[in-house]
Design a protein around this nucleic acid. Structure first.
Ligand code: MN
Ligand code: MN
Ligand code: ZN
Ligand code: ZN
Lengths: 139, 139
DNA sequence: TCAAGAAATAAGAATTATTCTAAACTGCGG
DNA sequence: CCGCAGTTTAGAATAATTCTTATTTCTTGA
């Protein structure tokens, strides 16, 4: 009588061509229903455990990469040996607080870069990113 | 009778407050007498072996970090799990060819960025870097 | 020139993030 | 409900880097 409305996350996964498995749906919820975030695989795994979602770390890694491939996430590399995954896939840039190891969004609108050379032949630009590295204010 | 003139590398190390040991001098030569480079610890270790310089990988890592701390090198992070060390310490930016895993300099002069917000309070900008990620030209 | 202490090196073990393997499970079309 | 491709998982494996500790090498001041 009451046909279940498929949750939003399920639809997003279907659109992306990813089977809405228990784990993927749960992770999609954590990631996409919580505003803009910059999260590590370990962190997400921790949140999943805290939310009583049983999922292996390998699956968290797989899922993060699949989501990235599908354009639901973006991978940000600012520190050696660790990847952050960004739920904000719009064009934007980052502050990186080196003391706190924390990324902060810089909205992409209104930022203009001039003077860049054209890319070497045989290549084309995939993405342009600005990283503003921050340290403690040593006034 | 003929007092040896201390090689350039020795002087650079002294200025930087680093003892000019056999290994550091040899690595400084490889790094600083070969034009602008973006090199990995493993790569440098390989070059050292090829040049018959006996130095351990641990020392290569130590040296690269010390040089970076002293401002003789700059560390660039563009790929998860690997650091590049840049012999160009002037203000500049990079193309990163993701297919070849190769960094290319973009001279810092003439590049202007506008519209950036000011850093969050308590922090100050340490460095601003632009990374232009390249893929194969899929015309 | 030499002795002594401080600093640096090296070998290998250890750590960390991530990926791989292969076996068990599950969503879904028929 | 079957069956199978796609998915998950535990644990092993990998890769880059760091750590530990004994040994070696600079530096300096008798
Ligand atoms: Mn990745
Ligand atoms: Mn480092
Ligand atoms: Zn972001
Ligand atoms: Zn460079």
């Amino acid at each position: 009588m009451k046909p279940e409305a498929p949750p939003k996350a399920v639809l997003r996964l279907r659109e992306a061509g990813l089977r809405p498995t228990r784990q993927r749906v749960a992770l999609a919820r954590l990631l996409l229903e919580n505003g803009g975030r910059h999260i590590t695989a370990e962190q997400l795994h921790g949140e999943a455990r805290a939310a009583a979602i049983r999922v292996s770390l390998a699956t968290v890694y797989n899922t993060l990469h699949q989501f990235t491939g599908a354009g639901l996430l973006r991978e940000v590399v600012v520190e050696p040996g660790r990847s952050y995954f960004d739920t904000n896939t719009t064009e934007h840039h980052h502050f990186f607080d080196e003391a706190k190891s924390e990324l902060l969004d810089i909205g992409g609108d209104g930022i203009v870069i001039s003077g860049l050379p054209r890319p070497p032949s045989g290549t084309e630009v995939r993405r342009l990113e600005i990283i503003v590295r921050l340290g403690p204010d040593r006034h």
